[in-house]
Computed example of a mutant assay.
Amino acid sequence: MIRILATLLGLGALAVAVTGFAARYLPIAGHPTLILAAAAPYLSVAALAAMLLFVVARRWVLALLAVALTVALMWVYVPRFLPGPSEQTDAVDVRVLTSNLGMGEADPRQLVALAGAGADVVAVQELTQEAADGLSAAGMDTVFPHRVIVPAPGATGIGIWSRHPIVHSGRIDGYALPMVGTRIRVPGVRVDATVLSVHLAAPWPMPIEDWKSDYATFPDTLREMGVAAGAGAVIVAGDFNATYEMAPFRRLLDGGYSDAGNESGAGLARSYPAGGIGLPLIGIDHILIKNCAAATVRTVVVPGADHRGLLATLRLPVDMTAS
């Protein structure tokens, strides 16, 4: 009886784990596949349970199948917790903080204190006019004297503050929410860095069409930004409203981009939801990089916001022609 029960439970666990593995590669056509992809890391844990249950049931063929699936899942997830090799010896460190302000509700004093202590560039999303005024009153413009901000009601505001000079900027339209792009002159780096603050459409609980449209278009924007940047670093920070498990997000990495969290070994870098006493469940805030490297990435608490911020130390080569 125990063997039968363990076998049945093992088959159920195996089905859950296979679903989690497959969800990473399925096209996201609607909310069901979206939810499965977001839950993939949690579903994948069932592979270990299946392996143990099949051993208890002495179902050796099924146990080997569960072992193979577990190894495949480890091949997918373990590298995300391991920092990649550092190849840049002559580089300038630039610290980047990205934070979704939660409809402008983030505490301005604490955000300025956090940014002032740990960042050189700050990318924000959901920047309302009230939030912009509060940040300025709290000293943001003093600590970060260069800025490009587009305050707007609700979730539509966006902005960038920088310690280093902003030498060019522009608003990027054509998406559900506006974005801003800048060229920042980092002392000691030969070619100006391109920095974008982005906020892609949310796929839930509203209809998913805007999200799908943004993800169909954004790879072209990244490609164009990469071409325009030439040998210069490209840093794309913000609320992507997608986890790394979602295939449309991973397609953004084509063309030489990498996810700074993955490159630095930050693991799942879960950032949402950040309210209440529980831990965030999914990582939808990201920093994508090109022509530079990620030394460290970690999530940080931003009081009042419904996302955790993401704080990264990036290494920009001094001679970008050598990157």
Rank of each mutant, 00 (worst) to 15 (best):
L8K: 01
C292M: 12
T70L: 12
S197F: 05
V76D: 15
G230H: 11
V189A: 01
M103A: 12
L53Y: 03
A63G: 05
I2G: 12
V297H: 03
A22M: 14
V78G: 08
D259N: 15
V198T: 13
V234D: 00
A63S: 06
Q88W: 02
V189T: 09
L288Q: 07
P187D: 04
L65D: 09
G116N: 07
Q125K: 04
T194E: 00
P79K: 11
D173G: 12
A23P: 12
I35K: 07
F21M: 08
V55Q: 02
Q88G: 02
I2H: 07
E224N: 12
D141H: 09
Y42M: 12
T182R: 00
S44Y: 07
S86P: 02
V67L: 15
V18S: 09
V96Q: 01
Y272V: 08
Y215M: 09
A231Q: 13
L34Q: 03
I172D: 01
I287D: 01
W60C: 01
F21I: 00
D192Q: 14
A242V: 09
L311S: 05
P165I: 08
A201R: 06
A119S: 13
V198Q: 04
L268R: 14
L26R: 13
L279T: 14
S162P: 05
L36T: 07
L11F: 05
P165Y: 04
V301E: 10
S44M: 14
L82F: 07
I4S: 10
A38Y: 07
H168I: 00
V302F: 00
G230V: 14
K212N: 07
L73E: 14
S213I: 11
V301Y: 06
A229G: 11
G278A: 15
G10S: 04
L9I: 13
P108M: 06
V92D: 02
N262L: 10
E263K: 10
L316T: 01
G265Q: 08
R190P: 01
V180F: 02
P83M: 05
R308M: 13
L127K: 01
G261W: 03
V189W: 01
F21E: 09
L252Y: 11
A23H: 10
D192I: 11
A242P: 10
L279N: 15
L69A: 09
E130K: 14
G261R: 08
M179H: 12
I172H: 03
G84Q: 11
R3C: 03
L5D: 00
P248C: 08
L43E: 09
P203S: 07
A152P: 06
Y77C: 04
E263M: 13
I284C: 08
R183K: 13
H146P: 04
A305F: 05
F249A: 13
I28D: 11
L14C: 10
P145D: 06
Y257S: 05
F249W: 14
D214C: 14
A293T: 10
Q129E: 15
G159Q: 04
V195R: 01
S271T: 15
A39K: 09
F54A: 03
M179P: 05
V92C: 04
V112T: 13
M320A: 15
A294R: 02
V45F: 15
G278Q: 14
D141I: 07
H164E: 10
A137H: 13
D133Q: 15
L196W: 08
T98I: 08
Y272T: 10
G154E: 11
A322E: 09
H31K: 11
Q129V: 08
A305R: 03
P145S: 07
T321K: 07
E105F: 05
